[in-house]
Structures are given as C-alpha cells and as structure tokens.
C-alpha cells in the first residue's frame, strides 16, 4: 500500500545551466551543469553530436622555386608532386 506521506517530485522540463541565482531562487527546470547537451527537443536533454575530420592531417610543406609560376609540393611521404597551381607575385 502506498505511503500517504510519500511525495513525488517530477522534473519534466529539463533545462540548462543557471547559476545566476542561488539554489533557492532557481526554477524547477534549471540545471547545475550540462555538458555536451542538446536542448532542441523541448523538455528533454539529449547528447550533442560531435565532429569529424575533413581530409588528412595537413602535413605538406610548400615552397616555391622562384617568385613566379611553378609550385612544388613536398608531401609527408617525401614524394614530390608538381601541381597545376600557380602563384602570381607581380
């Protein structure tokens, strides 16, 4: 049989960090800390997406043999590739 003195305290509108007020001045929905959370669904708290690398880690070093047109690119594997890029410094 249910205890008549039992109380249920529901949190059904999960909010975000709020430390502007002290602990007694906050709203029911306020949170103490949220990390990597997404609040796009109203009332819920969801884990945020991450990020993914685009391309390889940049390892090439570049140098020009002159101040004009040809660019030589050395990659991390020490192979040399002539690219079609050009640089005008005039």
């Amino acid at each position: 049989m249910a205890n008549p003195d039992e109380k249920v305290t529901p949190l059904d509108n999960l909010g975000s960090v709020q430390r502007k007020t002290n602990r007694f001045g906050s709203e029911q929905s306020d949170a103490w800390l949220t990390q990597n959370t997404d609040f796009s669904e109203i009332g819920s708290v969801k884990k945020k997406e991450g990020y993914a690398k685009r391309g390889d880690t940049l390892t090439s070093t570049t140098s020009t043999s002159s101040s004009t047109s040809t660019t030589t690119t050395s990659t991390s594997t020490s192979t040399s590739t002539s690219t079609t890029t050009s640089t005008s410094t005039s």
Binding site: A31, Q35, N36, K48, G50, Y51, R54, G55, L58
Partner: peptide
C-alpha cells in the same frame, strides 16, 4: 595540430568519446 573538422558530424570528437553529463539543481521536495 593541423587538422580540420566538420561540425556537427558523427557521435564522437573525431574518434574520441563525447563526455555527456546532466546535473540537476538541488531538489528540495
């Protein structure tokens, strides 16, 4: 460290786990 990332994308930080945490305020019933 010479890396470029697309964001948001995927469910990790480029392979590293995402630290998700939610702490409620202090609830005084």
């Amino acid at each position: 460290s010479a890396e470029v990332f697309l964001t948001p994308s995927g469910y990790s930080f480029d392979g590293d786990p995402i630290k998700f945490a939610y702490e409620t305020k202090v609830i005084y019933p």
